[in-house]
């Protein structure tokens, strides 16, 4: 065996300017390669989830609700049609959260892979953006598959319903960015997962107007919806998929809320990653 090719100083080949402009994509490529190891499981979940939810809650429970409310429907439509946009947004939020929180913990704590990335020309900001980009990729195909199942179940009424795909991804991105920043600060993840699952994700899912209009809730509980990206995305999704009435002002409010969440999440995530790597 020979090692005569082990050379030093490929000044021509190593291009730090190129890494500066494309670093986040290199991280995303590596992360996508990891994701491909269990891609069939992710796709299976992405298809099975909507089928199970739409059959059990949308058709099963929805059948009872539709009988009881009669032709007036819920918000003027079948319960399945009312419910589906919320589930679509929830799928995007759950997908991006999985793809931001777990890789962040793996990178900083479980396998410390972020430290090996940071010993190359990659910066903390690029690593955080790269992880985020991969999460967007997962959100994209999760939502597209979900939307396909919704369409197959007849839960899509409007011709512009497909626009609910980008709005759901937008909500997922906003929540995912913020969770990535939070995960970047974590030292003890066990308590975090208990708190996140029981006191954040569950209330958001239950109290964001997912299963019934937010206005049906007592006023003192409605604030949960207002601060929830799920409610904002659900309102936009319902507006797009079946014409749920949302004033132009509220459309802006929904977008601005999600936009602020996204910008803050990305800003703090980059900052936290950079600081923690330099510790």
């Amino acid at each position: 065996m020979s090692i005569t090719n082990i050379r030093q100083g490929s000044l021509v080949l190593v291009d730090s300017a190129k890494v500066q402009s494309r670093g986040a994509f290199y991280v995303a490529q590596a992360r996508t390669r990891q994701m491909m190891k269990w891609i069939w499981m992710i796709i299976g979940i992405a298809i099975a989830n909507p089928i199970l939810y739409l059959i059990s809650v949308g058709i099963g429970l929805g059948g009872l609700i539709d009988q009881s409310v009669g032709p007036a429907g819920v918000d003027g439509v079948k319960y399945l049609t009312f419910l589906a946009p919320a589930l679509l947004a929830q799928a995007a939020i759950q997908g991006t959260m999985d793809e931001t929180v777990f890789p962040t913990l793996e990178g900083f704590k479980w396998h410390k892979t972020f430290y090996s990335m940071n010993s190359t020309p990659l910066s903390g900001t690029q690593i955080s953006y790269g992880i985020f980009l991969t999460a967007l990729f997962r959100a994209f195909y999760t939502v597209v598959l979900y939307f396909g199942v919704m369409w197959a179940f007849g839960a899509v009424e409007s011709s512009r319903a497909w626009l609910a795909i980008p709005t759901a991804i937008f909500a997922g991105a906003s929540f995912g960015a913020l969770m990535q920043a939070l995960a970047g600060r974590l030292e003890d993840e066990n308590i975090f997962f208990v708190v996140l699952g029981r006191f954040v994700m569950m209330p958001l899912f239950m109290f964001s107007g997912t299963f019934f209009p937010l206005t049906s809730m007592p006023f003192f509980l409605q604030w949960i919806g207002w601060i929830s990206p799920l409610w904002h995305a659900t309102e936009l999704g319902r507006h797009l998929t079946y014409g749920h009435v949302v004033s132009p002002t509220m459309v802006w409010v929904h977008f601005i809320f999600l936009g602020i969440m996204l910008v803050l999440g990305l800003f703090f995530s980059a900052r936290i990653f950079t600081k923690r790597l330099a510790k």
Binding site: K18, V19, Q29, Q34, T113
Partner: peptide, 23 residues
Amino acid sequence: QDNLDMQLSVAENLYIYGRYFGL
């Protein structure tokens, strides 16, 4: 500490690391 990517293969670990340098 060997901070290798445990989910990837031996060759993939070398490949992705090389890409981080923009090679």
